[in-house]
Nucleic acid binder design. Structure first.
Lengths: 103, 103
DNA sequence: CATCTCCGTAAGAATTGACTTACCGTAAGT
DNA sequence: ACTTACGGTAAGTCAATTCTTACGGAGATG
């Protein structure tokens, strides 16, 4: 439930794919699994990781579990990125301005 | 050298720490290693991953290797995030507008 | 040239991660 | 109540990560 977990969660290609599918449209587990080359239990496990990271949410609908993206999860990632974006630019600017350390 | 590798690279806490240190100021390997609870070779290996992901660059200075952040690396991450940011918000909006799928 | 510092690479051990099959519970339909 | 559809959890396997120690090479210093 923090940006750290979000990085780890989205590091896996299958989980990124899941997230991207859910970003297009909320879906139950079966629909997600049918579009991926892995078993349904594997999808369940990946969804758990995404949910623990706060990137997706679940909603029960009959026997189905509809997963959907959670904007706040991405927002945390954005926050981290913005936090370091300025620093990175500044560090880079300083680097090209004085190429040798001692100058 | 793509956003996929960037996610994988920043998924590791030690590598994130390295990146954050370099965002504050370019540094040689030894300086980085002395501030982390892992051996210097481990730091070298992590830096290789970050470099392969395009998140940092190296510059030789005598026997030292000065590592520095590479803005373009972060930019790729930003691009992915922005790409899905709108989708996520739209999917979320649709989700709260019509709570049951068939509506 | 001898030596010291700095750092990348190799090799191997230990941990973590992703996947599979098997199984169980819950909801809906007949 | 029986059966079928849906999906989470458990256990085990195999590959990928992460770390360590040992080593080697390239640059600075006497």
């Amino acid at each position: 439930m923090s940006y750290e977990d979000s990085f780890a969660a989205l590091a896996d290609p299958t989980r990124r794919h899941l997230f991207e599918m859910l970003a297009a449209e909320p879906m139950p587990v079966g629909a997600l699994a049918s579009r991926l080359p892995v078993s349904r239990p594997a999808v369940s496990q990946h969804l758990k990781v995404l949910a623990d990271a706060g990137l997706v949410t679940v909603r029960a609908e009959g026997t189905r579990r509809i997963y959907a993206v959670r904007p706040q999860g991405l927002a945390e990632l954005r926050a981290w990125l913005d936090r370091y974006w300025d620093e990175v630019l500044a560090a880079f600017a300083a680097e090209i301005t004085k190429p040798t350390k001692g100058n």
